[in-house]
């Protein structure tokens, strides 16, 4: 077995205004990594680069230990990919689209696909353009799962879905991970989903990775600190992304143990951060 199921080193890509620079991401087998960032931060670009749908300027991407361009076919056979707003031949039925796609996979399991269709309540004789957004996503996921992939790469799989479908989807991902050889890499700007099931979280902003860490560690060591606006200067040095009004300030603290040892926190309100808070404060201007 190779070291990491996904290994990205020094990935860079420029497009007009936008630049992805020196992106490094590592994911081991058996875990779920959430990829968080604002719209336009570079999530979709990174994912498309992994799938060789966009040509990189520089850097290295290895999936299952193999180069993502040289071994593209091998990799695509073992990766289940779902794009942001899944794509099909819209005028044809689900059944036709699947019959077409399945011919290209080495390990297509049609029995599994039929099972998933029933489970997801998808009518395979419906035309793609008659399906709702949630249905399309589930169809794409069913196809992605039916060729027995080892890695699922999903771009914003839950956006635009109602909470019930979202929950179903998260359940499916957790089921997938029961096999500790498999991993999931998914991007989302709905951070609560990643907060639920993510093992690792990677934050990206304006084309740069700003944090990549075990989710638990992040949520334990980082804290939201609130206090009287007058005091803000006492702590300013160690505060990240300060939000300030006339009467109070709110900021993020990175290593709370160290912070607690250094300062008197009795007049401060300390809270557990959400991943949203972390993204917000880390990306605040002036950081």
């Amino acid at each position: 077995m190779e070291d990491n199921i996904l290994e990205i080193r020094g990935l860079s890509k420029s497009y007009g205004d936008f630049r992805l620079s020196e992106v490094n991401i590592s994911l081991t087998r058996g875990y779920i990594m959430g990829f968080i960032g604002a719209n336009g931060a570079g999530k979709t670009t990174t994912i498309k680069l992994i799938m060789n749908m966009v040509k990189k300027d520089s850097g290295e991407i290895k999936v299952f230990g193999r180069d993502h361009v040289k071994d593209e076919l091998y990799i695509k056979n073992k990766v289940g990919y779902v794009s942001e707003q899944p794509v099909f031949y819209e005028n044809e039925t689900v059944a036709w689209n699947v019959n077409f796609a399945k011919k290209f996979y080495d390990r297509w399991d049609h029995a599994l696909f039929e099972e998933l269709l029933i489970k997801f309540k998808i009518d395979k004789f419906k035309k793609i353009n008659q399906l709702s957004k949630g249905m399309k996503m589930k169809t794409a996921l069913a196809i992605a799962l039916s060729h027995h992939p080892e890695l699922l790469i999903l771009d914003e799989p839950t956006s635009g879905l109602d909470p019930i479908v979202r929950d179903e989807l998260l359940g499916i991902l957790m089921e997938f991970i029961q096999d500790e050889n498999k991993s999931v890499f998914f991007s989302s700007h709905i951070t609560s989903d990643i907060e639920k099931i993510g093992d690792y979280v990677t934050f990206i902003d304006k084309g740069k990775i700003i944090l990549s860490e075990e989710k638990d560690t992040i949520l334990e060591e980082w804290k939201i600190v609130k206090g009287d606006a007058i005091q803000v200067d006492n702590y300013k040095q160690d505060l990240i992304g300060i939000e300030q009004t006339k009467s109070y300030f709110k900021a993020l603290v990175k290593d709370f143990h160290a912070f607690k040892a250094k300062y008197d926190i009795s007049s401060l309100v300390i809270e557990k951060p959400s991943l949203d808070d972390i993204l917000l404060h880390l990306t605040k201007k002036g950081n």
């Binding site: 060789n52 593209e72 056979n77 794009s83 099909f88 031949y89 996979y105």
Partner: peptide, 18 residues
């Protein structure tokens, strides 16, 4: 046209086709 419309290029590029 059929391959190109509705971002169809992605569908083909996601499949293991040379």
């Amino acid at each position: 046209y059929n391959d190109d419309k509705d971002r169809g290029g992605i569908f083909l590029r996601a499949l293991p086709i040379r």
